[in-house]
Design a binder for these strands. Structure first.
Length: 429
RNA sequence: GGAGGGAUGGCAGAGCGGCUGAAUGCACUGGUCUUGAAAACCAGCAAGGAUUAAUCUCCUUCUAGGGUUCAAAUCCCUAUCCCUCCA
């Protein structure tokens, strides 16, 4: 959520920044609501003040043993007036909230202009796409040789699910373990195990709600829909991990907070019909190792580079060619101020495909989360900055390994760093 | 499944209709003292919001949402979470 203070005092800057990401809003409407709010709020507070004063005087009179009847009469018609004023104010405020909650974050100055992924800018590149002296297969054909089974998944659940058995299932598990160990042992993250079903407050905190409910799987617990308690399957580990520290004032000595967690992710993929229907690229359920950091405002952009580097470290260790891309304003996620995507080379598709998305949210999430620290120099509670990134998406990493490390007979070379996690297996054939 | 008890500021913990935005302790900040530190003593110290050039002032908030009342941390109802006991 953007700062309402800024929306009041400096709406032009907000408008300009959001225009960069093609988001427009009705300034006049917002301003007129704001003016109404101001007038209403002042009136309401005056009424409340009067009521408080009179109530106090009644208390005093009673304590002094005086007759309070005339005082009661004087205050009699207050309640109605106050009720009307209060409910009007509430309506206006919820109208404003609705607008503000639907406004995305402002892009950082360094974010390139542009409308779509076409306009993203390549920042760096690591490794060279491999040269193959045979016809490369894509991961679906390769996977089916080694235990990747989409037919079984369709039978069990339907489209966009997968089943893995044998060595490929183990490779999938090995990747997860390797990533977690790497981030815990070498990059200084604290491992976190978190719930996969979360409440609406958590999703509001990180920005998935109220705007993107249709992307989520929704469950209800005891009772009919409507009055049942609603829980959502997490679309990313970011949600539970970041919300661990919702409504807290973090001790300075605990900063920065660095968490890594492995979770499944569930996405309805609404609006993605027909895209990436083949294979593991776009699934309703997939695994991800998620990095989350909570830092002081002044550190956040340096930490974004660092966190992105941690994700890159995994790709490098697995010897997977990739490039780092700065998302343009139009391609930025709702809550992000700046995002780097890491795109891994996929020989089967002859293209770079997203495998990690690393974002700085500045105080956009922290404001919703009420996530603060006490700054000793100002002696004030200040919002922290949040960041997260995939380190990495496990399913897509599996795809990348299959496609990049395939050999002409369809076998797969296992990268060295995974051998110990594979019980010594160096090749899948 | 049943019966109770609880949720209060950064933390711990009083208060149980009006003088309580909230005692006290800890933590924190400033000061006195000290060569320095500790201790002791003194002072300050919740958040959010409205208004303001700023100060002042005002409003809201004692888990959340409703209700009673001129007045609610305090009484009533509902929800959530925690704890204890019984089956």
């Amino acid at each position: 959520m953007l700062s309402k203070k800024q929306l009041r005092s400096d709406i032009e800057t907000v408008e300009k920044a959001l225009k960069k990401r093609k988001f427009s809003f009705d300034i006049n409407h917002l301003n007129s609501l704001e003016n109404k709010r101001k007038k209403n709020q002042v009136e309401t507070q005056e009424l409340q003040n009067l009521r408080n004063i009179r109530s106090k005087s009644i208390g005093k009179a009673k304590a002094a043993g005086e007759d309070i009847e005339p005082l009661l009469a004087a205050v009699a018609d207050f309640a109605d007036k106050l009720d009307v004023a209060k409910s009007e104010l509430q309506i206006i405020q919820s109208q404003i909230d609705e607008i503000v909650m639907a406004m995305p974050n402002m892009p950082h100055d360094s974010v390139p202009e542009g409308d779509s992924e076409e306009d993203n800018i390549e920042v760096s590149k690591w490794g060279e796409p491999g040269q193959y002296d045979f016809e490369v297969k894509d991961h679906v054909d390769l996977g089916e040789l080694h235990g990747l089974d989409f037919e079984a998944a369709v039978k069990i659940s339907g489209a966009r699910f997968s089943v893995m058995t044998g060595k490929i299932a183990r490779l999938h598990r090995a990747l997860t373990q390797f990533m977690l160990d790497q981030h815990v042992e070498n990059n200084g993250y604290t491992e976190a195990y978190v719930p996969y079903l979360v409440n609406a407050e958590s999703l509001t905190g990180t920005g998935q709600l109220p705007k993107f409910e249709t992307d989520l799987f929704k469950t209800h617990l005891h009772g009919e829909e409507g009055d049942a308690k609603t829980l959502y399957l997490i679309p990313t580990g970011e949600v539970p991990i970041t919300n661990m520290v919702r409504d807290t004032i973090v001790k300075e000595s605990d900063l920065p907070l660095k968490f890594v967690g492995h979770t499944p992710c569930f996405r309805s993929e609404a609006g993605a019909y027909g895209r990436d229907t083949r294979g593991l690229i776009r699934q309703h359920q997939f695994e991800k190792v998620e990095l989350v950091q909570v830092v002081k405002a002044q550190d956040s952009y340096q930490v974004l580079e660092e966190l992105t580097g941690h994700a890159e470290g995994i790709l490098q260790a697995l010897n997977l060619p990739y490039r780092k891309v700065a998302l343009c304003a139009g391609d930025l996620g709702f809550s992000a101020a700046k995002t780097y995507d890491l795109e891994v080379w996929m020989p089967g598709q002859n293209a770079y495909r997203e495998i990690s998305s690393c974002s700085c949210f500045e105080d956009f999430q922290a404001r919703r989360l009420q996530l603060r620290w006490k700054n000793p120099t100002t002696n004030k509670q200040e919002l922290l900055h949040t960041l997260n990134g995939s380190g990495l998406a496990v399913g897509r990493t599996l795809v990348a390994i299959l496609e990049n490390h395939q050999q002409d007979d369809g076998s797969i070379r296992i990268p060295d760093v995974l051998h110990s996690y594979m019980g010594g297996i160096t090749i899948i054939n």
